[in-house]
Amino acid sequence: MRRVTWLLSLALLSGCAAEPAAAPVSPKRSADPRPRMEQIKADCMKQRGFKYLAYIKPARPEPDQSTYEAMKTYRQKYGFGVFAQYVYPQDPLSGSIETARKEVADDPNMALVGKLNDSQLDFYNKAKNNCAVKATKEVLHKEVDSVMDGLNLMRDAKEELEAAEIDGDPELISLASGLADCLVGKGRRVPSTKPMALAERGFTAFWDLTDTLRDKKSEGQPLEITPAQARPYLDREVKEALEDLECGKGFYTRYAPKHASIEARVWGEYGPLLGR
Results as ranks from 00 to 15, higher is better:
M1E: 13
R2C: 07
T5C: 08
T5I: 14
W6C: 11
L10G: 09
A11F: 00
L12R: 11
A21V: 12
A23Q: 03
P27Y: 15
P27L: 12
A31G: 02
D32C: 01
R34I: 00
P35R: 03
M37L: 08
Q39H: 01
K41F: 11
A42Y: 03
A42K: 12
C44Q: 05
K46Y: 07
K46I: 02
R48N: 15
A54V: 02
I56T: 14
P58M: 15
T67A: 08
T67W: 10
T67Q: 13
E69N: 02
A70Q: 12
Y74V: 05
R75D: 13
G79N: 11
F80R: 06
V82R: 07
F83P: 03
A84Q: 01
Q85N: 11
Y86P: 00
Y88H: 04
Y88W: 10
Y88T: 09
D91K: 10
S94Y: 12
S94C: 02
S96H: 12
E98K: 07
E98S: 13
E98P: 08
R101P: 08
R101D: 05
K102S: 05
K102D: 13
D107L: 04
N109C: 11
A111D: 12
A111H: 11
G114I: 10
G114H: 05
D118F: 15
D118W: 15
D122V: 13
F123E: 15
Y124Q: 05
N130H: 09
K137P: 04
K137R: 11
K137F: 10
V139L: 07
H141I: 00
K142I: 03
S146T: 01
M148R: 12
M148K: 13
D149G: 03
L151V: 03
N152G: 04
L153V: 03
M154S: 13
D156H: 12
A157N: 04
E160L: 09
L161D: 05
E162M: 07
A164P: 04
E171I: 09
E171H: 06
L175Q: 15
L175Y: 00
A176E: 14
G178Y: 00
L179W: 01
D181Y: 03
V184T: 14
G185F: 13
G187Q: 08
S192A: 08
S192V: 03
T193V: 02
P195L: 06
A197R: 05
L198M: 10
A199V: 10
E200Y: 02
G202Y: 06
A205T: 12
F206G: 15
L209Q: 15
T210N: 13
T210D: 01
D211K: 13
S218Y: 07
E219Y: 11
G220D: 07
P222E: 09
P222N: 11
E224K: 10
I225Y: 10
P227L: 12
A228L: 04
A230V: 08
A230Q: 09
P232W: 06
P232R: 14
Y233L: 14
L234A: 07
D235I: 04
R236G: 14
E237A: 11
A241V: 05
L242E: 04
E246H: 14
C247P: 00
A256W: 14
A256Y: 10
P257M: 01
P257G: 01
V266L: 10
Y270V: 00
P272L: 05
P272V: 05
L273Q: 10
L273E: 09
R276E: 08
